[in-house]
């Protein structure tokens, strides 16, 4: 990324929160909305603009699970581990996804296609166990279905790349 561009963008975001107490966390929220994660180059610029030590920025980023230090995958797979989904086999679904994608929750596949994460209750407990990919919700997921579901997305992307 071009440093000058980053500087301008970060400055705009930071300026809207200038002088407000606790602004670091709000600025980081907006930065993540803008870039999908908080790149190191951006933290460096932010440190300078807000006059906050880089170490403090990283304390905040790593303290809150919300913030990401790596680019998100193309498709975010959220596996619900809320009470209902957990009891209906959420852990088994998660295990299958970890196995198929070779990633742990919070990680992104090497090809950048899938980001796996665990969430607590998506508000549709009647469908348990639930997996959400992007904005699409899959209910009553069984371990044997998992492979088919993610294949659709990988094929999607392959078809698009080919086109």
């Amino acid at each position: 990324m071009d440093k000058a561009v980053i500087e301008q963008e970060v400055r705009e975001i930071a300026d809207s929160w200038k002088g407000k107490e606790g602004n670091l966390i709000m600025v980081l929220h907006q930065i993540q909305n803008r870039y999908g994660y908080v790149p190191r180059e951006v933290s460096l610029v932010l440190s300078e603009i807000l006059d906050v030590p880089l170490a403090r920025i990283y304390e905040v980023i790593t303290f809150y699970h919300f913030f990401r230090l790596t680019p998100p995958g193309k498709h975010t797979i959220s596996v619900c581990m809320g009470t209902a989904c957990y009891l209906k086999g959420g852990a088994e679904i998660l295990g299958e996804l970890e196995h198929l994608l070779c990633v742990k929750p919070g990680e992104t596949t090497k090809d950048g296609q899938f980001h796996l994460e665990v969430v607590r209750c998506l508000g549709c407990c009647g469908l348990a166990p639930v997996v959400k990919i992007g904005e699409k919700v899959y209910g009553g997921v069984k371990k044997k279905d998992v492979g088919d579901i993610i294949t659709q997305y990988s094929e999607d992307s392959e078809a698009k790349t080919a086109a």
Binding site: P53, L54, A55, R56, Y58, E59, T62, F63
Partner: peptide, 9 residues
Amino acid sequence: VWALTFLHR
């Protein structure tokens, strides 16, 4: 110096 910090929680 701020070389060292705590990460994660």
